[in-house]
Write a protein that binds this DNA or RNA. Structure first.
Length: 136
DNA sequence: GCCAACGTTGGC
DNA sequence: GCCAACGTTGGC
C-alpha cells in the first residue's frame, strides 16, 4: 500500500466537488513525472487531496484509488488517469504553511517540488500530517 | 497581479 | 546533447 498526494486547482476541480461526486476520474495530468506516479498507483492506495491556487493552499481530506490507471479519455495522446473515491473531508485542513513549518516534513515533495501535481508520500509523512490534523 | 521555479521546446 | 527561450504553475 502506497500513499500519495494529488493536487487540484479548485477552479478546475474543487474538493467540494469531489465530495459531491463521491467518485471521479483524475484526468488532465500532463507532466511525465506525475504520469509515472499515476501509473504506479494501486487500487486501495490513499491520497491526500490538496487544493492550490485559490484561498489557503492546504490538504483538505483523503481520497482512495478505486481504479488503476487507464488511457486518459480527454486526449488521444499517451496520458493516463485513475479513478478516485471520496473518503473523508477534514473540518480543519492542514495548510501548506503548517507543513512548511514542520521540520519532519521538510523533505516532502510538496515543499521541494512545488509543481509536481501527483506525488508519493512516505508513511511517516502521512502519519505526521494525520497527527497534525488530529491535534486541531 | 507579480514573479520565482520548474518543465518543455527547439535551434544549433 | 546542450542550453536559451518560452510557457505554466502556484505561492505570496
Amino acid at each position: 500500500m502506497q500513499y500519495w498526494l494529488i493536487k487540484s486547482d479548485p477552479e478546475t476541480y474543487s474538493f467540494e466537488q469531489m465530495k459531491k461526486d463521491k467518485r471521479t476520474f483524475w484526468d488532465g495530468v500532463r507532466n511525465y513525472a506525475a504520469r509515472n506516479h499515476l501509473r504506479s498507483m494501486k487500487k486501495g492506495d490513499l491520497c491526500f487531496f490538496y487544493e492550490s491556487m485559490r484561498g489557503e493552499p492546504a490538504i483538505r481530506g483523503v481520497v482512495k484509488v478505486v481504479k488503476e490507471h487507464y488511457q486518459d479519455p480527454t486526449t488521444t495522446e499517451d496520458w493516463s488517469c485513475v479513478d478516485v473515491e471520496f473518503v473523508e473531508g477534514w473540518k480543519t485542513p492542514v495548510t501548506l504553511k503548517e507543513i512548511k513549518a514542520n521540520k519532519k516534513l521538510s523533505q516532502m515533495a510538496l515543499v521541494r517540488l512545488a509543481r509536481l501535481s501527483v506525488q508519493p508520500v512516505r508513511e511517516d509523512e502521512w502519519e505526521e500530517i494525520l497527527r497534525m490534523k488530529e491535534k486541531k
